[in-house]
């Protein structure tokens, strides 16, 4: 039983840390290297997802689930936009100039060296005994942070109740104000985004829409050889009443 007893359960932490950190970093590099938007978004999903794993590992269950739901779910929208904006010319590639790469690598490398140096430079951050001690005193309750988090957002810090600082011990100093500010901010941002995404509803699109349509159709005709379309075959004269009502209805649908 020697081996079994030897490999302490503490090493699971190391194992999963390496796993999640590895996936996260590798796919982040993939995001950097690939040029296909949809694949980029997909790799980003994997990277962010395994970062959520790191959050779970560090005991932040709620934040991890939040990361999955909002961040990764938000990337979903990115993905859709990627598909939408590139659907006309699939697998669109926008190559970066080599100079940019060199420059970015140099600057990024320097920054990385600096940051890693800083991260590894503080002794108390590298103190493994602290983490071993914390793990040894493992208590599942420590991860149960959803309610304290919620209360903190409403302005009460239940985790500071036994604090030495008398000001904190009242259970004050919550995050109510930031919470409200962020809420209002979100609302404003969503309204603003919805407003901005609308172009002026105009019959005079800046880059001729019909021209583009015509080009597209010519291309399509080439693909499906027996399709013959004349791009400018629209007759508004033969409209009947019922059709107009139908068109109005469709407009309503489109506005929805």
């Amino acid at each position: 039983m020697g081996i079994l007893a030897a490999v302490n359960r503490v090493y699971w932490h190391e194992f999963f840390f390496m796993l999640f950190a590895g996936i996260s970093v590798v796919f982040a590099v993939c995001v950097l290297l690939t040029q296909n938007i949809v694949r980029m978004a997909f790799y980003l999903v994997l990277s962010l997802g395994s970062t959520a794993g790191l959050f779970f590992l560090a005991g932040a269950e709620f934040v991890g689930a939040m990361q999955l739901m909002i961040y990764v779910g938000g990337t979903l929208v990115l993905l859709i936009f990627g598909v939408m904006l590139t659907a006309q010319q699939r697998y669109v590639k926008m190559n970066t100039h080599p100079t940019d790469w060199v420059l970015a690598t140099i600057v990024g490398g320097s920054l990385l060296v600096l940051l890693i140096g800083a991260a590894a430079g503080v002794d108390s951050w590298k103190d493994a005994s602290a983490s071993k001690k914390a793990l040894a005193e493992l208590d599942v309750d420590d991860a149960r942070t959803a309610t304290p988090l919620g209360l903190a957002l409403t302005g009460v810090r239940v985790d500071k109740l036994d604090s030495d600082d008398p000001a904190l011990a009242n259970g004050q100093s919550g995050y109510l104000l930031p919470f409200i500010i962020v809420s209002v901010h979100l609302l404003v941002v969503l309204i603003g985004a919805a407003y901005m995404a609308r172009t002026k509803r105009s019959a005079t699109a800046p880059v001729g829409r019909a021209e583009r349509a015509r080009l597209n159709i010519m291309q399509m005709e080439h693909e499906t050889d027996d399709v013959v379309y004349s791009a400018s075959k629209q007759s508004s004269s033969s409209l009947l009443d019922s059709d107009q009502s139908q068109a109005e209805e469709s407009t309503d649908e489109a506005q929805e």
């Binding site: 995404a197 105009s202 019959a203 007759s235």
Partner: peptide, 22 residues
């Protein structure tokens, strides 16, 4: 460059999208 689609049944979108032949 600007064009106008005459047929009111063809709907102009707020978001510009591309047409597809299916």
């Amino acid at each position: 460059m600007s064009t106008k689609v005459d047929d009111p049944r063809v709907i102009e979108f707020d978001v510009r999208t591309d047409e597809m032949l299916i």
